[in-house]
Design a protein around this nucleic acid. Structure first.
Length: 808
RNA sequence: GCCUGGGUGGCGAAAUCGGUAGACGCGCCAGACUCAAAAUCUGGUAUGGGCAACCAUGUGAGAGUUCGAGUCUCUCCCCAGGCACCA
């Protein structure tokens, strides 16, 4: 190897070395016997045909630095990787290029593996997961069956989200502002029998546990927001002249006296009954027009309110007032009871509707200074006291809520109620590329779970796997596979032709990694106990309400079934920021995508890793600006020169002080993921160590190499061995320690302020008495000029930092 | 509309238990090496004024607290992300 830094040669050499020595991988026995386990996880990629995205590598580099750091701290670090290869994303791409995913995926995985090795991740290639492999999806199906046994799976005919382009149903989480998450088509509503996981059973726990897991705040807030707890009450309104009552949900029972009409969702089951003969036609055509809307249209907040009268009237239980019942599309069947009492005086949507249809608007809350008859120009939603509310007048909003619910509850027409926005997880997909749902539909027995010993239900190979609009999965076309006898009665039956949502595959992969050597069970109890839950998980926040929510739910469910002993999968989660390019999102259509291979070819993986983490704070948006890569590249070149020319001898005191300060800072900042400033500190230290062209001492360089090793593992290994160390840095070295006493200097430069403005600087001994510091400050020429002829009123000394002389 | 982040040089950013604003890096300028260029190395680089010493201004806007505010308080504005007719 030449004396010049040659990244390609160094990186090839050390990657081969690690592989040969098994530096990063575990045997099954070693996994079982690990003394101080640390499970370092990153989100397994979807192996696209375009290749690994630099954004993935941004996340992986940070996570890998964390894993390598803990390894140097002496932990037994398990850092697995795998491939999330089932799912609509892979299938849609295959359709686009007119190939079969069965052929595409293996090639993509091979390409991803190549780049992941090239980038220098500390991956254990002995424990990988491929979600499309039968020895993985067998256990995905097993989890489905387990959930079924636990009563957490339901087959329901319900209005579901249908993507007309992907031709499948979608979970709520996969609908972004009314559009399909994958193809951005407007999503329609369809009534179809589907499989649901009862994640809503876990809503209270999913929310409550957020308080005691160490996760990024943004992620926790997004989850809390998505779960969407709201406290209120359900109230029954009698229908005038009929037996039925309408149950509504409200968070504002204090405004019951202000209810001037009722609204049902157009899909509400009572609509048929309540429509009077005169209104029947109008109601029918309104329901039809609503049914035709896609979600984008229906969810537009700024469109004009529409609705029609049913012709029926309800009786307000607080005062006996008779109020008309309307139907309108601003009330949703999927939330609460699908019916509301409308209080236009104190709800802006009701106000808008009442204004449009000329309905009465009553004030029942008054802010301080307002009278009971102060007119309302808009809905008043603020705090205040109750007015026009009979015996409840004068109560605060909070007291009014309590008192009114109590009084109605005593009559049996209301009860306090908590609602969640979270919906049950619709998991069936009418697509080809996923694990088949392990259920057989028997003409006599109905849906029958596939017996565990018959798993996996192998995914049949189809040449024509194109989805259609029928709502039936393409798998039904594989007749030999589809038609099968009932496992219970042996009568005629067929398999469930749907596949499960890809998020079921990714919802438990981290549980599997330690157990991949086991073919006879999903989770080895001993290994699971040793390695899980995950110590640190790093990944993009776009999965806050998708993957991360589902993984938590599945973990809780498996925990309740006794399959595992913890109910939160990730002890610590950190969301890395989004990687953008020159201020804009990277996308193929903009043509501003960075291809990792090209960066590694030109600068090497070490420079790329260092540069990605030097861009800015890891947990915030990072802007990739191509020209900036010169900085870290030059740094590694200077480090190379400095290290190969390093000489023996004791460290210079100035350099040694800088070293101890650097170790202190980097040791504090790496575990908290403040990578950019940790790198800056190491750069600064190198500048000190080679200042004025001096030759650095080996003892000055070696600790720097160890600190840099998580960031730039290849060059660190090479230089470490060139300094005369055998056996490999990651196998023999330990994270350097600093001595607090050696971080301190004898003298300090202090700023001298006069009335808060810096007028001079003095260099004094750190232990100089305060009086002497003040004297030295006054002696400064420029300071003296500013003090001249003025009365000194006050003196403030901040030891080692500044002196402020206040004059009047 | 609600919930998160964030707003600091030409650019990416540092510094927030209140204490020298701009560390580190990019870019730019000058110099060295070179026939020349690239690469590399050295020095400079917030803005305005001044030969300089220095002076004034400066962390989205405005007010406040303080000896002292990028940092704390109040009122706004803007950008990014999430949620959104959720009653």
């Amino acid at each position: 190897m030449s004396e010049r830094y040659d990244p390609q040669a160094v990186e090839t050499k050390w990657q081969a070395q690690w592989e040969r020595r098994g530096t990063n991988s575990w045997t099954e026995a070693a996994l079982r016997n690990a003394k101080d386990p640390y499970y370092n996880l990153m989100m397994f990629p979807y192996p696209s045909a375009e290749g690994l995205h630099i954004g993935n590598l941004y996340a992986y580099t940070g996570a890998d630095v964390n894993g390598r750091y803990w390894r140097l701290m002496g932990k037994d670090v398990f850092e697995p990787i795998g491939f999330d290869a089932f799912g609509i994303h892979s299938e849609n791409y295959a359709l686009k290029v007119d190939k079969n995913p069965n052929d595409l995926i293996p090639a993509n995985i091979a390409n991803f593996t190549r780049v992941l090795k090239r980038f220098g991740g500390m991956y254990d290639w002995n424990h990988t997961v491929n979600s499309t492999s039968p020895d993985y999806y067998r256990w995905t199906q097993w989890i489905f069956l387990k959930l079924m046994q636990a009563g957490l799976v339901e087959r329901r005919e319900a209005p579901v989200n249908w993507c007309p382009s992907c031709k499948t149903v979608l979970a709520n989480e996969q609908v972004i502002a009314g559009l399909c998450e994958r193809c951005e088509s407007p999503v329609e509503q369809r009534e179809l029998p589907q499989w649901f996981f009862r994640i809503t059973d876990y809503a209270p726990r999913l929310l409550a546990n957020l308080d005691h897991i160490d996760w990024s705040d943004v992620t926790k807030k997004a989850q809390a927001n998505w779960i969407g707890r709201s406290d209120g009450a359900e109230v029954d309104f009698a229908v005038k002249g009929r037996e039925e009552t309408i149950r509504i949900f409200t968070t504002r029972p204090d405004t019951l006296f202000g209810a001037t009409y009722m609204v049902l969702a157009p899909e509400h089951p009572l609509v048929e009954t309540l429509a009077t003969p005169e209104q029947r036609d109008a109601v029918g055509s309104y329901r039809e027009s609503v049914a035709k809307q896609d979600l984008v249209e229906r969810q537009k907040v700024d469109k004009n309110k529409t609705g029609v009268l049913t012709g029926s009237y309800c009786v307000n239980p607080v005062n006996g007032a008779e109020i008309p019942v309307w139907i309108a599309d601003y009330v949703l069947m999927g939330y609460g009871t699908g019916a509301i009492m409308a209080v236009p005086g104190h709800d802006s949507r009701d106000f808008e509707f009442a204004s449009a249809f000329d309905l009465p608007i009553l004030r029942v809350i008054a802010a301080p200074g307002e009278e009971a008859d102060t007119p309302l120009a808009e809905a008043f939603v603020g705090d205040g006291t109750l007015v026009n509310s009979g015996e409840f007048d004068g109560l605060t909003v909070a007291d009014g809520k309590r008192a009114i619910v109590e009084s109605l509850a005593a009559r049996g027409v209301a009860e306090a109620q908590v609602n969640y926005r979270l919906h049950d997880w619709c998991v069936s997909r009418q697509r080809y590329w996923g694990p088949p749902i392990p259920v057989i539909h028997c003409q006599r027995c109905g849906p029958v779970p596939v017996p565990e010993e018959d798993l996996p239900v192998e995914h049949p190979h189809l040449d024509d796997f194109r989805p259609d609009d029928s709502g039936v999965s393409p798998l039904a076309r594989a007749k030999d596979w589809y038609e099968t006898p009932c496992p219970r009665c042996d009568g005629p039956a067929h398999r469930d032709a749907d596949v499960t949502d890809n998020f079921l595959c990714s919802g438990w992969y981290f549980l599997r990694y330690p157990s991949t050597d086991r073919e006879d069970m999903a989770l080895d109890p001993q290994l699971t106990r040793k390695w899980l839950p995950v110590d640190c998980y790093i990944g993009g926040n776009e999965h806050a309400v998708l993957h991360l929510m589902y993984a938590r739910f599945l973990t809780m469910a498996l925990s309740d079934m006794g399959e595992i002993e913890f109910d939160e999968p990730f002890t610590r989660f950190r969301a890395n920021g989004l990687l953008i390019r020159d201020g804009r999102k990277m996308s193929k259509s903009r043509g501003n995508v960075i291809v990792p291979d090209s960066i590694i070819d030109r600068y090497g993986a070490d420079t790329m890793r260092l540069y990605l983490l030097f861009l800015g704070p890891y947990e915030q948006v990072a802007d990739y600006q191509s020209r900036g890569i010169q900085g870290p590249h030059g740094f590694l070149n200077r480090l190379w020169q400095c290290a190969v020319e390093a000489v023996a001898g004791d460290p210079d005191p100035t350099v040694e002080r800088a070293l101890h300060r650097t170790i202190k800072q980097v040791s504090e900042q790496v575990p908290t993921l403040q990578f950019n400033t940790a790198i800056a500190a190491m750069m600064e230290y190198l500048n000190v160590a080679r200042a004025g062209g001096r030759k650095a001492r080996k003892a000055e360089v070696e600790p720097l190499l160890v600190m840099l090793a998580p960031f730039a593992p290849h060059i660190a290994e090479e230089l470490y061995s060139r300094l005369g160390n055998d056996g490999g840095l990651f196998e023999t070295a330990r994270w350097p320690r600093y001595d607090e006493a050696k971080t301190a200097a004898d003298t300090a430069e202090m700023a001298v302020q006069v009335n808060g403005k810096v007028r001079g600087r003095i260099t004094v001994a750190v232990d100089l008495a305060e009086a002497d510091v003040i004297a030295a400050a006054k002696a400064n020429e420029n300071v003296a000029r500013h003090l001249d002829g003025k009365q000194l009123r006050k003196t403030i000394v901040v030891p080692g930092r500044l002196v402020n002389l206040v004059v009047g």
